[in-house]
Design a protein around this nucleic acid. Structure first.
Length: 196
DNA sequence: ATGAGGATTCCA
DNA sequence: GGAATCCTCATC
């Protein structure tokens, strides 16, 4: 079943980041061709007081403005001039929470995924790294602010159970500039996933 | 108008 | 370990 808008309005982005593990992320940009997989790695970015967040210090710009929107849309931006990074905006309007999707285990549209990535093989059967996830699913910065409750990008709960013991918690990647906040345990990795 | 730097990835 | 590569944002 698709996650409804209500899911994304929850006020605790750290809990949401954990709850997204095991959910299915789908895209349908080329009519009839659905690509997607199981979310296996996420990072929470906790708003204006989180030094690692683009929205730290209530910084509202054309780019970061997306995060200040009501939850349930995509925040996509270009990193290092090359990679599109896909985030999920959460919480209510004016509270810039977002969750970076860093890993997906592809389950749907493998042919299309291979075509987009041109990777010889998908490492360990998974897309590990936010740049790879976006590339494989066909997401780029033109999809910034795309609703996650529509027919282009959406997330489904397919009934999989995620055991707390199967979630590895670490500090976030690539945010050394964030001082103390770089140490926050806001990265979650799914170790194991059991269907049904 | 300009320049610095980035929530990364791949290959040598 | 280094290059690729371009958009965003702060500052001039």
């Amino acid at each position: 079943m698709r996650l409804s808008k209500q899911f994304f309005l929850h006020d605790n982005v750290v809990i949401l980041a954990q709850q997204l593990l095991g959910k299915y992320l789908f895209t349908n940009f080329n009519p009839g061709i659905i690509t997607g997989g199981i979310i296996s790695e996420t990072e929470a970015y906790a708003g204006v007081n989180d030094k690692a967040s683009h929205a730290f210090g209530n910084r509202r710009t054309k780019r970061t403005g997306t995060m200040f929107c009501e939850g349930g849309i995509a925040y996509v931006y270009l990193c290092y001039g090359i990679h599109s990074l896909f985030n999920i905006v959460t919480n209510e309007n004016d509270i810039p929470h977002a969750i970076l999707v860093r890993g997906v285990i592809p389950t749907h549209g493998m042919d299309k995924i291979k075509e987009r990535t041109s990777y010889k093989k998908i490492e360990s059967q998974s897309l590990n790294g936010p740049g790879k996830v976006a590339k494989a699913l066909g997401i780029d910065i033109s999809h910034d602010r795309t609703p996650l409750t529509g027919n282009k990008i959406w997330i489904e709960d397919r009934g999989g159970i995620v055991n707390k013991n199967d979630i590895i918690t670490t500090s976030r990647i690539g945010v050394d500039y964030a001082g103390d906040d770089a140490k926050l345990p806001y990265r979650f990795v799914l170790k194991r996933f059991t269907c049904e």
